[in-house]
Simulated assay, not measured.
Amino acid sequence: MHRDEAVVRLAPGTRLTGPAVRAVDANGLTGDDGWTVATVPIESVEHAHDEFLRLGTAIEVLEPPELRARITATVTALARTYA
């Protein structure tokens, strides 16, 4: 995986935008559960964080670790706010 890529897991029916659509179509592997794992291009960890958060639970970031950690921190903070 390159620094400008992320490995994601997408819920059935979830569509990304831009170059990520082509990447999912080209290398996405759909499991028996209907979720698709794919390597997608990202502009930066910061940009991907914002873009992927809008998808809520329809996406799981598997790599890179720094993006996963940043999303985890944001979701944890949101959970504290809304608890």
Rank of each mutant, 00 (worst) to 15 (best):
M1Q: 08
H2Y: 03
H2G: 09
R3E: 15
D4N: 10
E5A: 05
E5M: 08
A6R: 04
V7F: 03
V8L: 10
V8C: 06
V8F: 10
V8A: 06
L10A: 10
L10K: 04
A11F: 14
A11K: 14
A11C: 08
P12N: 01
P12K: 01
T14C: 12
R15C: 10
R15E: 15
L16Y: 04
L16D: 01
L16C: 08
L16T: 06
T17M: 02
T17H: 06
A20C: 07
A20S: 09
A20E: 08
V21S: 10
V21W: 07
V21G: 08
R22V: 08
A23N: 07
A23C: 06
V24D: 04
V24Y: 07
D25N: 13
A26Y: 02
A26D: 06
A26M: 07
A26N: 09
A26I: 01
N27M: 06
G28F: 00
L29Q: 14
T30S: 04
T30L: 14
G31W: 03
D32L: 02
D32M: 01
D33F: 01
D33N: 03
D33T: 00
G34C: 02
W35P: 03
W35S: 07
W35Q: 06
T36C: 06
V37P: 02
V37L: 14
A38N: 12
T39D: 13
T39S: 15
P41A: 02
I42P: 05
I42S: 03
E43Q: 15
E43L: 14
E43K: 15
S44P: 12
S44G: 07
V45A: 09
V45R: 02
E46R: 00
H47G: 09
A48T: 05
A48R: 00
H49M: 04
D50A: 14
E51V: 11
E51K: 13
E51M: 11
E51Y: 12
E51C: 12
E51S: 13
F52S: 03
F52C: 04
F52K: 01
L53D: 02
L53M: 15
L53A: 09
L53Y: 04
L53V: 10
R54I: 07
L55C: 06
L55K: 15
L55E: 02
T57K: 08
A58M: 12
A58Q: 13
I59L: 14
I59N: 07
E60N: 15
E60K: 15
E60C: 10
V61K: 09
V61W: 10
V61R: 09
V61E: 11
L62F: 10
L62E: 15
L62V: 14
E63H: 04
E63D: 11
E63R: 03
P65F: 05
P65G: 07
P65S: 08
E66H: 07
E66W: 08
L67M: 01
L67F: 04
R68H: 08
R68I: 05
R68Q: 05
A69F: 01
R70F: 00
R70I: 00
R70K: 11
I71G: 06
T72P: 02
T74P: 08
T74A: 13
T74H: 07
V75T: 10
T76E: 01
T76V: 13
T76C: 09
T76Y: 08
A77N: 05
L78T: 01
R80N: 06
T81I: 04
T81G: 11
Y82P: 02
A83P: 05
A83H: 11
A83N: 09
